[in-house]
């Protein structure tokens, strides 16, 4: 799963100056990914903005009354960042997405705390220590693990992991943040292990030889030479795995418990951003404040995921530059 291919393709190394009609036909087709991306950004934000633009939020007592209107003077973006999410009632509606942002953060960090050590150790063991045949099997297994549908992981979490969490940690319900973090760590593991292995593999052999020639053991070579040399790629792998975990919907929807109350306690029921969208979309009326608020959740999620993706790519490109290696 390469992140960027800087160099031109092999067909380009053959110099052809004239750009014929076929060149532009394929160029037009290639624009589709940009068009798709543009459509995504436009739709998510265009549907999220009416929430800010059209609503009139009037504070009253403990809450606020939401009224429709074009009076922009009363609309506050800040209402999205309050701590209470209660969109269903007719009169007193609250659209604070902080509980969901917190849930996403807690669950993702929990998942990464498990997935990164295991993924990294798998990458090092298989890439540097184990025999060659193990590496082939390992890559196939990772590919198969990565392909298991998220709803199956969710089902697995619901039947196996949630009861286990309930009994081992003696909590009221197994549907909590920890179960979601456990499931996500299993799901992010293949991505992290596979990408970290690629990063280690990309370290030139001369590094290994130089280190071993100085009398270092294999482990010292790995720990002091290879991992620092591949650090950008390894960090990129971790961040990309994290991006996967943030965007995961079905698995967390089934095991996280989905309570929209603000809590930092991983043993409590939580509702991450993705689950928030999936849960409420069926009930929201098209064009209502609730509907637009869900798009605002989507916009938040998209921003988080894209920032992570770009950071990961930045690390990856830096790795390629530093090693003077180009793909392709």
């Amino acid at each position: 799963m390469s992140v960027s291919m800087d160099e031109l393709g092999p067909g380009l190394k053959i110099r052809m100056k004239n750009r014929n009609i076929d060149c532009y036909v394929f160029f037009t087709l290639a624009l589709i990914s940009l068009v798709a991306l543009g459509v995504i950004l436009y739709f998510i934000f265009a549907q999220a903005i009416p929430f800010v633009g059209k609503l009139k939020v009037v504070p009253e007592g403990m809450g606020a009354i939401v009224k429709w209107g074009q009076d922009y003077s009363h609309t506050r973006l800040w209402d999205l960042f309050s701590t209470r999410w209660s969109p269903a009632s007719y009169k007193h509606q609250f659209f604070g997405m902080v509980p969901m942002i917190v849930a996403t953060t807690v669950i993702t960090l929990g998942a990464m705390a498990l997935a990164i050590p295991f993924g990294l150790s798998a990458a090092v063991f298989v890439g540097e220590v184990g025999p060659r045949w193990l590496k082939d099997i390992f890559k196939t297994v990772l590919e198969l693990l990565a392909a298991v549908p998220s709803i199956v992981y969710g089902f697995f979490g619901l039947i196996i992991i949630a009861p286990w969490v309930r009994e081992s940690f003696d909590v009221v319900s197994g549907s909590n943040g920890l179960s979601a973090a456990l499931i996500l760590s299993i799901m992010a593991l293949p991505t992290i292990a596979s990408l970290a292995e690629d990063a280690l593999h990309a370290v030139p052999n001369t590094y290994r030889e130089a280190s071993l020639a100085l009398g270092a053991t294999k482990w010292q070579t790995i720990w002091r030479t290879l991992i620092p040399a591949a650090s950008s790629g390894v960090i990129g792998a971790g961040i990309l795995g994290m991006g996967r975990a943030v965007g995961e919907t079905m698995a967390v929807l089934l095991v996280a418990g989905n309570s929209a109350f603000l809590t930092w306690n991983i043993f409590r029921s939580m509702r991450p951003l993705t689950a928030g969208i999936a849960l409420d979309m069926a009930e929201s009326v098209h064009g209502s404040a609730h509907y637009h608020a869900l798009f605002a959740l989507g916009a938040m999620l998209l921003l988080i995921a894209l920032v992570m993706n770009w950071t990961a790519e930045w690390f990856h490109v830096r790795l390629l530059r530093r090693q003077g290696i180009r793909e392709g």
Binding site: V3, S4, S33, A36, L37, V39, I40, F43, I44, Q47, L240, G243, V246, G247, E248, T249, T274, I277, A278, M281, L294, F295, G298, L301, L302, A305, L306, M308, N309, W310, E313
Partner: peptide, 14 residues
């Protein structure tokens, strides 16, 4: 690359 990083639920919304 960016399209590959968009969460699947966002595709649902779009």
């Amino acid at each position: 690359n960016t399209l590959a990083g968009v969460p699947s639920i966002v595709f649902g919304l779009v």
